[in-house]
Design a protein around this nucleic acid. Sequence first.
RNA 1: CGGGGAGUAGUUCAGUUGGCUAGAACGCUGCGUUUGGGACGCAGAGGCCGCAGGUUCAAGUCCUGUCUCCCCGACCA
Length: 488
Amino acid sequence: MSNKGITPRSENYSQWYLDVIERADLAENSSVRGCMVIKPYGFAIWENIQKELDRRIKESGAKNAYFPIFIPKSFFSKEASHVKGFAKECAVVTHYRLKESEDGKGVIVDPEAKLEEELVVRPTSETIMYDTFSRWISSWRDLPLRINQWANIVRWEKRTRPFLRTTEFLWQEGHTVHATHGESEKEVLRALKMYSDFAKEVLALEVYSGRKSESEKFAGALNTYGVEALMQDGKALQFGTSHDLGQNFAKVFGISFADDDGKTKHPWQTSWGVSTRMMGAVIMSHSDDLGLILPPRIAPIKIAIIPIFNDESQNEVLQFSENLYEEISKVVDGVELDQREFLSPGFKFNEWEKKGVPIRIEIGKRDIEKDEVVIVRRDTNEKNSVNSREIGVRVLALLEEIQQNLLKRSTEILQNNTHEVSSYTEFKKILKGKKGFVKAYWCGREECEENIKYETKATTRCFSKEGEGNCIYCGKETADEWVFAIPY
RNA sequence: CGGGGAGUAGUUCAGUUGGCUAGAACGCUGCGUUUGGGACGCAGAGGCCGCAGGUUCAAGUCCUGUCUCCCCGACCA
């Protein structure tokens, strides 16, 4: 059995995805059901994502805070549709103590230590935060309130997959409160744009974004907007959402304020979030059969320098590569000098490829003699020799070029795999074959949406545009074009 | 919760109709030779064959029970 090749994407996409994660050393399954251990290299990517996104969140005026992981059951059950949406996937704390079991083997839950009120491990923090907000807000001068939280949350999903859907996951949730619906609607769209910009500029992912259908709405929201990316197997992955919560939560959590007209009003709220699932989107969209490909902006190691030497040339090459390392480090963070003597160059090339490092620099005696180094870019695997004196400028430009190239590729894939159709036969044919996004008119009736889902597995991902057409399923005239796809 | 599959070395697995001291590859340790695409040689460490019963002269292998994990669906960011 060979452990060299990664499963080709065409053969078994799901297995290929798991291989990429394992071989890049990003994460592994833990012994806890559905939970994942994010390993140091994977976590470093997450930290880069966090850093960049946190900056953008703060630019919007939001401040970071932290709320409890436990939500009293009673809080959780105030907003009727919210409960309905999350009830099926909640982990609940019922006891606060263990004791030795009677046969002396191990421990049991102490039945004496039952909580008076059970605590729900947060599946999202609306309720616990808004309970607090009701005490923070009393005047129009307290608005808008913008709070962001980086946290772990738990959703007891039936089926889990690393990064895409784990029982516990890390995310960022922004919660804002506004005096008027106009303001909160603006905020919802601002957050949505922040996410789609982030996808493009940082993750190098082209996306669709827009309003969700009634059935895909967040539990308790007036309207939900989402960002959708396309994976290499033609399925869509939602990686961010932004909700217009209206006054639903304000009413049940007693959040009200005295407006400048002297009247007491309920404010308008929004919430928006993205999770570690984004990393799944990055892994799935950019990687190839050699392994992970990371957009430079989130790569923990942007450049790996590999000295190639033998006993005779060792000193000279190492000295040269150390100088090179110093030189490049002046302009780039995340340079790795791989001086390990016990590994062959080929092994190292492969190792950094699997990890998705954007640029590899090879340097041996024959380069030094010509005063050159070899630069290899991960996205195209092109090899070029460049003069070692201009290395700093060259790698900076190349990192940017790789970032842009990945986005360009992603954009092309999205465009080439988006089909506008007007007949249901065509619709079904595409979703049975190469899949991808399908733009089609839909009358808005849940019945049609459900039938389409049942027959093709595709659902509405987001609203596309207004035009003129007939519902792809029932044929009724409608102005609404929607983006459909088979989701993860 | 339905449908499949698997539990044997750190990992992936082989182990025939029950039969000698349970194997391989990769990984790991030591020594030596190597080093421009996953190096090679030699030596070594590493196992309650998921767990509990049973059948048998003899069980990794057969039977019963039990636990766990993985994959494919339904639920979902």
